[in-house]
Nucleic acid binder design. Structure first.
Length: 221
DNA sequence: GACCAGGCACATC
DNA sequence: GATGTGCATGGT
């Protein structure tokens, strides 16, 4: 195999098989989930999304105009409910205002322009933006998260101080631009991260059979 | 009861 | 520019 990033991908893919991300029914639902899952376990996000679906609020127009207090109550299970209600609403209002309520319009501008617009919005940082672009828009935008940082830093593959874009570049520089692979790759990293790279080291049985250099380093910056 | 989870914004030095 | 802190629920 030609490089480490490819090698890791092959190992994970062989061990776990396809992950079938993102767990959502529509692009908008992907975006809603991306905002709700910030620093939050997915199970809690699902509760919130179920409640939004029951309230028929999984459209940009509905989210943009719903009463803020009502939205807060619905997303409460996902935590940070005041912030997240605001973020969902401002994101939806942006879609309605700038793109006729459709994510398609956002994505049609291309990755770079769409990403820039997303990053202007309150509560949408690099990971949330990349998740929306990759999983809702199927655009080539590699997603980095805390597990990605832990795995690379614990193995000593990247500098401890590396930030989001250095981590992202580590992958992008080694991989062909392949949306489908990047989709699977991030999902696989979350999978192996949950099982073997939590705050406490659980390296037994990890499909990445490499020697750790810094077993307990968890910082992202 | 402490600790953690698929981040981000903002204040302060 | 870098470090620190608030945000909040639900599971282990």
């Amino acid at each position: 195999m030609s490089n480490l990033a490819q090698e890791i991908y092959e190992s994970l893919r062989t061990h776990y098989g396809p992950q079938g991300w993102w767990p959502a029914e529509t692009p908008l639902e992907v975006a809603v989930g991306a905002i709700l899952t910030q620093n939050t376990q997915w199970g809690n996000v699902e509760r919130a999304i179920t409640r939004l679906r029951s309230a028929r609020l999984l459209t940009s127009v509905a989210l943009a105009s719903v009463d803020r207090g009502q939205l807060e109550e619905l997303v409460r299970p996902a935590g940070y409910f005041r912030q997240k209600a605001r973020r969902l609403q401002e994101f939806s209002q942006f879609l309605v205002r700038e793109h006729d309520g459709a994510l398609e319009g956002l994505f049609q501008q291309g990755v770079a322009a769409a990403r820039e617009q997303l990053l202007q919005l309150n509560g949408i940082g690099p990971e949330t933006a990349d998740s929306i672009l990759l999983y809702a828009g199927q655009l080539p935008s590699f997603v980095v998260d805390t597990y990605t940082a832990r795995i690379l830093k614990r193995h000593g593959w990247i500098d401890d101080e590396a930030g989001y874009y250095e981590l992202q570049d580590w992958f992008v520089a080694q991989l062909p631009e392949d949306t489908q692979q990047w989709n699977e790759y991030h999902a696989l990293i979350v999978r192996v991260g949950k099982e073997h790279c939590g705050s406490r080291a659980k390296c037994d049985g990890c499909p990445l059979q490499y020697r750790l250099e810094r077993p307990l380093e968890t910082s992202m910056e």
